[in-house]
Every structure is written in structure tokens, then in C-alpha cells.
Design a protein around this nucleic acid. Structure first.
Lengths: 336, 336
DNA sequence: TTGAAAGCGCTAACAG
DNA sequence: CTGTTAGCGCTTTCAA
């Protein structure tokens, strides 16, 4: 069996309370007693049992993170941010992948709760108020992250999507494009962030003379969807003299780039393409994808920072934290 | 405060033992008592405190996973496998990213131990016997995963690298290539898996008449390294009539593909390129990368399965488990 | 400055 | 079939 506080106490010839005091630095202990305890700890290789400690302090030093799928690079990036700053404050991360299933999300929330996690971060891809309500009922700090849908009044951290789409459109305009196609996703859900992005896109167009906008709805946000829409989009491009395609997510853009490659359409020579997100592949693929950087790492980092602040009773900023974006100018878009 | 077993007992008018029995199904309980308990649990929304439970059962249902960086897609894929099968057996995963630092690895191992994890999976990119020894000292089930270096006699799961390189070379040969360049990494470390891969490559060449082998050492395994070696490799290709480049990792291949793109070298028209790993990007990039599939998901899955088997005292197979590979024939290699 | 003792929430003998 | 009780390893009053 492993060595406990009792063993240390015995060896150091003090009571277990004294041992506890030195390992927690919670109360004054005489120099010599402390030294004896320290020596005993060293000698026995004693490591406090965090489980026992958690039981009495009611602090598990665990933060639960429910994600859709660590295989998505943006999710991996968020988790990186979460883990790295969690670590700085001595919090460990318990990962649960829901693969988008709302029931699974809920089950995990309960599971995490029974593990006494001190806070929960939910990275979701569909709005699922049922789960959110469940978690809010726990009365522990909670941050909701969703790249596609509005978090409404829930604590979250994101970018200003209106501004992002606005800026990207402006950039395209600055390149000389006059006919820009925006590719959105035709989800009928009212809370889709596409609403804001389309507004930003339109606003940018309105600000400029002699340009025209076109909106196309793909049937999803993934690489597959981007590929599958290729034929129709290519047709649209021809019919309307479109010179730039602004995809609402990098994945869509990459899929479309693949379609172009497979069909002999040269990017950016024949058509400029840009994305949204700056997922890892955007800067690896050739041509490198021009896109707007949504700082996923920072989003994760700020999310957990907020949770920790609440746990430490520090002042927290407003519920919705906006992070700055950046236009990543690369080779998939050219001047016309 | 949250509801405890006592509250349930009181409401159901039974002792806490009875409640414990019904939630654990550990001993017979009369139908009516069970029902009363169930009702009480339902009414109070009782969830057993896993921390308390862990303290007495000494089972945390936690498995610690130390990784280098979840941002590497092959790592993410392994973690997926680990998490998904862990979940099937009701184990949660505690993630720790070392970013390759051996001291961090060791610190995390200790941390995980104090959290009473029941097993540890270490995904490493350098051989670090110090950490391995530390973990082995814990006497809990342990699996060591390393994509680049030999695990020697440590419990691990991998592919047969000799065979994989052999098969890929055979495939290239079958395409008609007679001058194949193998790109390895010049680590001087004796335990590099490159040793086996180069052997497999050479063996395949030896089996065939009139073909020639060339080996080039890059300065790393990453995309950057693949890019940076581009110029030298391009020169080698010219000088030796090389028609195919076999890179020891996908990342290297992708980097080289990028170099080719940026320098007007057409793949596979001018040169065939293949990789090793089948990381996510291999099938997304254009041209899609011909490569050997190292089943990362399965590796993770089998690794944790082994740990769980040990935990359940089930029979476990030998220490080193080999998983089958597959040649992924795609467009980056052509017939000559 | 120190030790004794209570108790965190739960499981597992043990006795009935 | 059920209740009582003794811990699991630790923190934290409370007295001394």
C-alpha cells in the first residue's frame, strides 16, 4: 500500500495534524518539527492523496471539458489553450467527447459533476439548451463555446462575427473584387452566427460603390460539403462573373479548393477563395488559404481563465468576452 | 450543499447501507426497499460522490494520458481512440500535455499518481527512460507509445515498421520506379525506428533487379523540415534520376510537397512522393498523399484496452502489440 | 506550537 | 434482507 500521512507522522514523531500543516503551509510549525516532517516525506517519498484531500476540501482541482471531437483541429486548439492555462493554476482537465450527441453531452455533464469537477467548459456545435440548463443547475462556473451558433446570454468567449465578416469583405474589396460570393450554410436555425456574418458581409458591400453580392447556401460546414458544392458554385461563378468566394468556414473553403484542384480550376488565378477560422490546415495547404483568424487557442485559454477567476472569487468581466480577429493574407486570394 | 447518501436514506426510511446496496447492486435488497430508495434518489436528484467512493474503493476510474501536444493530428487521433474505448468501460481521461519536455512528463506522472489514476498512457516523442522508470515504479498498468523511437521491452502498441517500409517500397517498385529516395531523419539515437524502416526499404530493393536506393537525412520530422530539405532533395533527384521520394513521416512529405508547389515542381508528374503515417492531412491535401496507414486511433484504443484488461485481471497478450498496416494508394505517386 | 478528535461521503465487513 | 460500525486519507476545529 502506498505511504500515507500517518506513516510520515510516525517517522517524524509528530501528529498527523502537524504533517498536514507543513504540507499545506496552513499553520505555524516549529522549525525543527517542520524539518523532521520534510525529511520523513522525502525519505518515504510521500505524495498526498488528492482524492482524500478533495473529499474534505471539496475541491477536486478538476475542470471538465466536454467537446465534440478532438479530431477537429479547432477543437484541439481550444483544448490546448484550456489545458495550458488550467495547468498554470494547477487544474487538471477531464476530457469527454460527445461527437455531437446531445444526450451524450448531458450524460457527460452529470458524470463530470459526480467526479466533483469545479467547472465545466462545453464546446458544442449545435445549440442544446437542455444540456446548458442542466449544467447551469449545478451552480459551478461554466463557459459555453460554440463556433457556429449564438450563445445568446450564456457565458462565452468568441470573436465579433459581424466585424470579422465585414473586415474580410473589405479586404476582398481592397483587392479589387467586385463580385463576391459568400458561402453560408442553410441551417434554418435562428441562432446561427451566419446571420451576423452575412450582415457584416452585406454592410461592407453597401459601403462600396459598384459591387455586387451573392449568397450561396451549402449543405453543411465540412470539407465534404465544400467539395460537393463545387459544381454549383463553379456554375454561379461563371454566370455572375464572380472573382472571389468567401466561405463561412475554412473547412468549406478547403473542400472547395479540392474541388477546384480536381477540376482544373486554378486558385487564385481563376478564382480567389478565402475562408474563416484559420484552422491549422489553412496555412499548410497550397495555395495557402487567406482567412480570418479566430483565435481558438486564446478562446480556450480565456474560457478557463474565467472559470478559475470565479473559483478564486476574483472579479470577472462581462459574460460575453470578444477576442480580436485578424485577416490572414495568403495566396488563395489575388488582386484583380 | 449537495445531496448525500444520508439524505436518500432518510427519505427512503432505510439505512445508508441499503442505499449503497441499491446504487451498487452489490447485495440483495427487497423489492419495496429498493423502490423506495430509487424513488428517493429520483426525487432528490441524488448522484453518488465519486470522490468519496474512490477514497474507499481505491478506484478512481481515471486513466492518465500524458501526451506531447494535442495539436498534432496523430496524437489527437490516438487520444480519440483512448477516450472512446475508455468511455466504454467507464473510465475518464485526464489529459496532460508535456510539449516534449521530459521534466514536465515526469511532473505530470507524479501529479496523475496523486490523483490516483489507475493507469497511465504515455505518448512521447523522445525516449526518456527516466520517466518510464518513474511510472513503472508506480506499479499501475502502463503503456508507452512512441511514433519515432523504439519502446524496447516496454509495453506498447505499434506497427511493424520494417514491414511497413518494405511494403511501401514494394508498392513504389510495382509502380515502375527504379530510383527511389528514402528520406529519413539523421538522429544519431540508436533507438530510432528509422533503423527498421531503412532495413525494410533496403530489403525491398534487394529483392528486385536493377533498382537503386538513395537515403537522405532531413534535420527533423516536421513540415518545416520537409520544406527546408526541398532544395537539396530536388538536386538529388536531378542528379540521380530519382522518380520517387519516400518520406519517413507524412509531415515531411507534406512539407516537401509544399516546396514542390512553391517551386513549380509538379507532383506526381515530375516526381512521385509518398509519406508514412496517414495523418489527417494526407487525404485532404492535393494531390492526396500516398502513404502507409499507421492506425493511430486503433493504437490508442488497444493501448487503453490493455490497461483495462490488466485492471480487470483479464489475460493480456504479449507486451508488444503489432497492428496491421495498409498502403493508401493516392495521387501523389504515379506509374512510370 | 501541537495533538486529539470529528467528519468529508461512501463501502464493506459484521451481526442480526 | 437490513442496520451498525469501522474506516479510506486527509483537513480542521478545539483544547491544551
Amino acid at each position: 500500500m502506498s505511504v500515507t500521512i500517518k506513516d510520515v507522522a510516525k517517522l517524524a514523531n509528530v501528529s498527523i495534524s502537524t504533517v498536514s500543516r507543513v504540507i499545506n503551509n496552513s499553520k505555524p510549525v516549529s522549525r525543527e518539527a517542520r524539518q523532521r516532517v520534510l525529511d520523513a516525506i522525502e525519505e518515504l517519498g510521500y505524495k498526498p492523496n488528492q482524492v482524500a484531500r478533495s473529499l474534505v476540501t471539496r475541491r477536486s482541482n478538476l475542470i471538465g471539458v466536454i467537446i465534440t471531437d478532438i479530431g477537429n483541429s479547432y477543437v484541439a486548439e481550444m483544448v490546448r489553450g484550456v489545458e495550458e492555462v488550467g495547468r498554470m493554476y494547477k487544474y487538471d482537465i477531464v476530457l469527454s467527447s460527445s461527437y455531437g450527441n446531445p444526450n451524450t453531452e448531458k450524460k457527460f455533464a452529470q458524470l463530470l459533476m459526480s467526479k466533483q469537477v469545479e467547472g465545466i467548459i462545453l464546446v458544442s456545435e449545435k445549440p442544446n439548451w437542455d444540456v446548458i440548463e442542466e449544467i447551469e443547475g449545478y451552480k459551478i462556473p461554466f463557459v459555453y463555446l460554440n463556433r457556429y451558433y449564438d450563445s445568446l446570454d450564456k457565458p462565452t468567449v468568441s470573436i465579433d462575427n459581424y466585424e470579422a465578416a465585414f473586415e474580410m469583405t473589405k479586404y476582398l474589396l481592397s483587392l479589387g473584387h467586385k463580385n463576391i460570393l459568400y458561402v453560408t450554410n442553410n441551417e434554418d436555425n435562428e441562432t446561427s452566427l451566419e446571420k451576423f456574418k452575412i450582415d457584416g458581409y452585406i454592410k461592407a458591400l453597401e459601403d462600396t460603390e459598384g459591387v455586387k453580392g451573392h449568397v450561396y447556401s451549402s449543405s453543411g460546414f465540412g470539407i465534404e460539403d465544400g467539395y460537393n458544392m463545387g459544381e454549383e458554385v463553379a456554375k454561379l461563378i461563371k454566370e455572375n462573373d464572380i472573382t472571389a468566394v468567401f466561405c463561412c468556414q475554412d473547412e468549406l473553403a478547403i473542400g472547395f479548393l479540392n474541388y477546384c484542384y480536381d477540376n482544373g480550376i486554378k486558385v487564385p488565378h481563376d478564382i480567389s477563395v478565402c475562408g474563416y477560422g484559420d484552422t491549422k490546415i489553412a496555412s499548410i495547404y497550397r495555395p495557402r488559404l487567406t482567412t480570418v483568424k479566430e483565435p481558438y487557442y486564446d478562446i480556450g485559454a480565456v474560457a478557463i481563465r474565467r472559470i478559475i477567476k470565479i473559483l478564486k472569487n476574483e472579479e470577472v468581466e462581462k459574460e460575453h468576452i470578444y477576442l480580436p480577429i485578424r485577416i490572414m493574407e495568403r495566396e488563395s486570394c489575388r488582386k484583380v
